[in-house]
Amino acid sequence: MNNFHYTKASSVDEAVLAGKGAENYFIAGGTNLLDLWKYDLTHPQKMVDVNGIEELKTITELPNGGLRLGALVTNNTTAYHPLVEARYPLLSRTILAGATAQIRNSATNGGNLLQRTRCYYFYDPASPCNKRNPGSGCPAVEGQNRLHAILGFSDKCIATFPSDMCVALAALEAVVRVTGPNGSREIAFADFHRLPGDRPELDNTLGQDELITAIDLPPRGYAEHHNYLKLRDRNSYAFALVSVATGYELEAGMIANARIALGGVAHIPWRVEAAETYLEGKAPTEASFAGAADLILAGAQGFEHNAFKIELARRTIVRSGMMALDPSCQRPGAPPSL
């Protein structure tokens, strides 16, 4: 809620130059950054408005058959883009299951990757929180932890990563393109977000002063067999308790190239490659997906208020796998029971 300097950048280079400094923030949609700022959780000294960088506002086809999503394309524009709808309907549906139409109209693809957790204690500046104030403690472990992780947490932090879109991007094995003072680089999606470990204050591997410029989608889009199933405390406009993005191809009725990613259960979109390998060559049956679920949820551990998520995740993986057989029955954003 502090005051800050504000400047506009019209190119990536200009932005990177202007953004240099620990307390300087790039602002695009602002839907999470301004929320955090108003709660006194971030204290920007300077906001660099990147909305004027036109080159980051396009969706373009890549020579390899993939698609490049500009970092400044809004979530809604991406979800409703004809190429995304046709080739990556899993991504389209996943985006539309998140937030609200208003937020998706402002929120950008780049910003989506950088959302902070919705842990109650992180959001209260007066509470201890290792993510916000390293070393201060984690009240969620013995407090209200319904929203919290069952996989990959540490004794320092049991927060979850709240994005829906990123769950699909994990399943699609997207690549994040970033530019910083030392030039540009690509980050595999699986390497972008990180587990809390001893440094829960770090959500991801984006370097300080680096700007996300695009997200590249590989050619494989699982357009025929995909599903995003999100379970939450109300039918819309709530963060996932458990969500599952499923995509696979069928060859002669048997699963090939399966991808399953989970949201709402960990500090990152959760993927277990062994489970995907396990499914290969198997028929798409409840038993097959249940077997995959066992591998995905191996080592899952619940807390006082979120232990239910383990069984819920298991069942959701199975249901999502089965729903992917016939995506025509699905509508964006709709809960399974409608």
């Binding site: 504000y6 602002i27 949609g29 602002g30 839907t31 301004l34 929320d35 906001m47 139409a101 208003q102 937020i103 109209n105 402002s106």
Partner: peptide, 8 residues
């Protein structure tokens, strides 16, 4: 449609 509270 956007949220005017989350926009400067």
């Amino acid at each position: 449609r956007i949220l005017s509270c989350l926009t400067l």
